[in-house]
């Protein structure tokens, strides 16, 4: 397995009845990287992961993972994948320790054998090893599920929205742990609806309506932003957005927390914008140019798609 490419998708498509969940997916994931799949709910992230983990078969195109075909060589492949589904696959009535032991046995290994790999993660929850998994907090469940997915030392780790429903501190901690896993040579594919987490990946793919919009490093994706971006603030956000969207000189206006990210059709219009807003009865307006984040680029790409 000298191949550098861990996942290779060529024109992969999947539909459920009339719904096209994935269309023309072309993708390469390299050994040892943390590859992020970013997109809103219903974009096809879970479907793509289920194809990679052999839980579903593609309707068209070819998909090889670790050099094995997901349709014909799925049995061999399943031994080498660690998968953490969107809903943590834990048995709530089993204790932390029992869950871990169970997954170790199922994969034909023992906790002892691979303890070094999970030590960083498991040590956080080890004090609670006799507690039923159902009584753990979201962050602890997540760490236990990750330990379970790693216990057989997989070559590829597939994490479906591991940080959804987990508090901010645990999220940050979790990404630190993932970076730590890279040292063990494990390739990680992770999906998330949170844009800020995209920055922590080596490379990311933006997915929307079953199609990949862009695959690159997070920085390169941000740099792909074409227009000039301004942040506009006012006292009342809602009427500000409505006023901006009604203006023909404004190209896009997206709310970002307490401010609105705006691009213009007309060069230099930002100088006249306060006056326009004043006419609309919106006061205390501040406008400043900002450098685009990954979410801005994502929204830009989304708008380009029909």
């Amino acid at each position: 397995m000298a191949d550098k490419v861990v996942i290779r998708a060529e024109d992969v498509g999947k539909h459920f009845g009339k719904l096209h969940a994935l269309r023309g997916i072309n993708l390469e994931v390299n050994r040892g990287e943390i590859f992020g799949l970013i997109g809103p709910d219903g974009a096809g992230k879970t479907t793509l992961f289920r194809l990679i983990t052999t839980l579903l078969t593609p309707d068209s195109g070819s998909l090889t993972v670790l050099g094995l075909d997901v349709v014909t060589q799925y049995r061999e492949l399943r031994r080498q994948i660690g998968y953490m589904p969107g809903r943590f696959s834990l048995y709530h009535d089993l204790t932390v320790e029992e869950n871990l032991n169970f997954y170790a046995t199922v994969f034909g290994t023992t906790v002892k054998e691979n303890y070094t790999l999970i030590a960083d993660i498991y040590s956080h929850i080890e004090p609670f090893r006799r507690r039923p998994a159902g009584k753990l907090s979201g962050g602890m469940k997540q760490k236990l599920a990750l330990s379970c997915a790693l216990i057989h030392r997989p070559a590829l780790l597939v994490l479906d929205e591991p940080t959804t429903g987990v508090d901010a501190v645990s999220r940050v901690e979790f990404w630190e742990l993932l970076r730590g896993l890279r040292e063990h040579g494990i390739t990680t594919v992770v999906s998330t609806p949170y844009m800020d987490e995209a920055m922590r990946c080596d490379r990311v793919a933006l997915i929307q309506s079953g199609q990949l919009l862009s695959i690159d490093t997070p920085t390169a994706i941000m740099e792909g932003f074409t227009g000039k971006l301004y942040s506009v603030r006012a006292e009342e956000n809602y009427s500000l957005i409505m006023a901006l969207r009604a203006n023909p000189h404004v190209h896009t206006a997206h709310p970002f927390g307490s401010s609105v990210h705006v691009t213009f059709n007309t060069e230099g219009y930002h100088a006249t914008l306060p006056q326009y807003l004043h006419e609309k009865g919106i006061e205390n307006v501040t406008i400043e140019p900002i450098s685009p984040g990954i979410e801005d680029r994502f929204l830009e790409l989304m708008e380009r798609e029909p």
Binding site: T54, R78, Y83, P85, G86, F88, S89, F107, G108, C148
Partner: peptide
């Protein structure tokens, strides 16, 4: 409970 998904991906 979604545990079947993990069992299926196991050997």
């Amino acid at each position: 409970f979604g545990t079947m998904e993990a069992l299926l991906v196991s050997p």
